[in-house]
Design a protein around this nucleic acid. Structure first.
Ligand SMILES: [Zn+2]
Ligand SMILES: [Zn+2]
Ligand SMILES: [Zn+2]
Ligand SMILES: [Zn+2]
Lengths: 129, 129
DNA sequence: TTTGTAACGCAACTATGTTGCGTTACTATT
DNA sequence: AATAGTAACGCAACATAGTTGCGTTACAAA
């Protein structure tokens, strides 16, 4: 495991994740960064944070990629919880307590899973539109 | 529901899906098409086939998008089966019989689900590399 | 055969992510 | 505090995936 340094750009990204309750895309992060760094740097920071298990990557049904901070303290962990993607407000939320159970043929070896639900979130369901 | 016409390009795409046991990306389809039509046309055909419930869209963990033909005769159906993505040969297969069970808070309304497993497929597991 | 329009080709554009390379700045060591 | 190794950075250029507009073609119903 390599050493990852603390830089101003990385700290800024982490602060944005700290303030956000939902998952964030590269573009969303960039627009909150006030030109602290280049957009390529944000890509590289996100890669590093994923590698260090500080954030995890979420791929939505429509192909959009977002990231959310990990709420686990463990050094090594898998993200087998569900993610909810709202079709109205387009927010993606971690449902840490929702985990799928399934039976898979024994001749497959599963290393990672992605379980995404899409529909209407509580907020958008209330404001019935 | 609009009328969708039968064209040479659409027939070619359908024939390719008929021959394939795994899901196909736009690029993979294009390379099997022998320049029957423009690449934009393939995008439009895929959109139409998804709308007509003839194929379904699969988004992989790495963000790549593939399509597979539907094995249901029903007019309206959801694709709640699992998809397996092999990290070695990169083939994506429908696991029609694998369906996740899960409990979600009642204040969410689920319209669609995406359940993708990644790891090693039976083929790549046998040729132990 | 006529006719309305779905489907098409082509060009241009956007969005997202990657790579190479010379420069900057973080952190451990002296 | 000064030094040094290298992680991280900026910038430009590139790559890939998907979209849009518009004039033209060809499918299918009348
Ligand atoms: Zn919402
Ligand atoms: Zn999550
Ligand atoms: Zn395989
Ligand atoms: Zn499938």
């Amino acid at each position: 495991m390599k050493i990852t340094r603390k830089t101003v750009a990385k700290s800024a990204v982490l602060e944005i994740f700290g303030k956000s309750k939902t998952a964030l895309s590269h573009t969303e992060i960039q627009s909150q960064m006030n030109n602290v760094c280049d957009r390529v740097t944000i890509y590289r920071i996100l890669d590093r944070l994923v590698n260090d298990d500080i954030i995890h990557k979420i791929v939505n049904l429509d192909g959009t990629v977002k990231y959310a901070k990990c709420n686990h303290a463990h050094r090594v962990h898998i993200h087998n919880h569900a993610h909810f993607s709202c079709e109205n407000c387009h927010e993606i939320t971690c449902l840490e307590n929702v985990k799928p159970s399934y039976i898979i043929p024994h001749n497959y070896k599963v290393n990672d899973i992605n379980f995404t639900l899409s529909g209407l979130c509580p907020n958008c369901l209330n404001s019935n539109n």
